[in-house]
């Protein structure tokens, strides 16, 4: 049973190593720290969003609004900085609490009115995307000394690798979320909700508080990802991050988290994002394949993983069946 729980995680890790090995064997310079560090810095925003998505999915929910929140927070940041001459840090200090409020609103709707997270966050998605487009239809460029400093901040690794601000922010967040999930009561509550929210409530889990906190965290992490995205592009654009919520969900599932909730690991999601990144890198190195092949491979992978999930959860279903007959 223990090994079954970790099985999807091991499969993802093995696939990651395998693909990395094949790439390194086929192409010069593939198996290098430069490629590895680029994987992190190019995908930092997706990694950050996927952290939040993992939490949400483990709790049995889903958050479709994150892609739009990335765009909204990026556009808001660039407007405040470029048009209103705010200091970036001040802009961030405004954006993050607003994002928290946005998440709290969705959490309240989900909990109080017993609404499907799918539909509530879909509404949130339209709302955030619409707001972002209203703020500015054009891409807003950022010119600020703080951004130049951010771009230069970091340290080099041997072999052409570079650990920049985005990667560092992600690693700090990753550690925080791991501690939160495995060493705090809140983390246990998140797993509890995903396991069986009724039992959790009867066992005294503060369901309202936990649900709201989960969506607050997801929105805040998405807003942070939007900010990190501006570090990457030096601009904010209302159509940024379209479909990124789906990439995040794919990464979470490939990383071994059950879509039905209750089981999964943050580190698996990181492996999921990296696997998707390695596929992309491989296709770039190959040069002859269209970049859309990334999507095709991810699609196939997802099929494989959901079938695997089904097979694994069938084992659990058998246990539950045995339980209910014994009870009757």
């Amino acid at each position: 049973m223990m090994s079954v729980r970790y099985l999807p995680l091991w499969i993802t890790a093995a696939l990651l190593c395998l693909l990395f090995g094949i790439g390194g064997w086929q192409f010069d310079g593939f198996a290098s720290l430069a490629v590895v560090s680029n994987l992190f810095s190019d995908n930092a925003f997706l990694l950050i969003v996927a952290l939040g998505m993992t939490l949400v999915i483990i709790s049995g929910g889903i958050d479709l609004s994150v892609g739009a929140v990335i765009a909204l927070s990026g556009v808001a940041a660039s407007l405040l900085i470029s048009q209103y001459q705010w200091h970036p840090l001040l802009a961030f200090a405004l954006i993050l609490p607003v994002a928290a409020l946005f998440g709290a609103l969705m959490g309240v709707l989900i909990h109080v009115y017993k609404l499907q997270p799918f539909i509530v966050t879909l509404a949130g998605m339209f709302l955030a995307r619409g707001l972002a487009t209203t703020l500015s239809e054009e891409s807003v460029a950022i010119n600020h000394s703080f951004y130049d400093a951010i771009a230069e901040f970091g340290f080099a690794l041997p072999g052409g690798g570079w650990v920049g601000a985005s990667t560092m922010i992600f690693i700090v967040l990753l550690l925080l979320v791991i501690v939160l999930m495995h060493y705090s009561r809140f983390g246990t509550y998140v797993y509890a909700l995903g396991g069986n929210s009724q039992s959790a409530e009867l066992m005294g889990v503060p369901v309202a508080r936990t649900t709201i906190a989960i969506y607050v965290l997801s929105s805040v992490l998405a807003a942070l990802a939007g900010i990190v995205f501006t570090f990457y592009t030096f601009s904010g654009y209302a159509l940024a991050g379209v479909g990124m919520e789906l990439d995040a969900i794919a990464a979470v599932v490939i990383g071994g988290t059950l879509l039905t909730g209750g089981s999964g690991f943050v580190i698996g999601t990181v492996l999921g994002v990296l696997l998707m990144g390695v596929i992309q890198t491989y296709i770039i190195f190959d040069g002859s394949l269209s970049s859309w092949w990334t999507k095709i491979v991810i699609g196939l992978l997802l099929f494989g993983f959901i079938v695997l999930q089904k097979l694994l959860s069938r084992r659990t279903a058998l246990t539950t069946a045995a339980r209910s007959t014994a009870h009757g």
């Binding site: 246990t188 396991g195 069986n196």
Partner: peptide, 10 residues
């Protein structure tokens, strides 16, 4: 409770 109201995944 009558039915085991615990969390199978924990």
């Amino acid at each position: 409770y009558q039915e085991v109201n615990l969390l199978p995944n924990l």
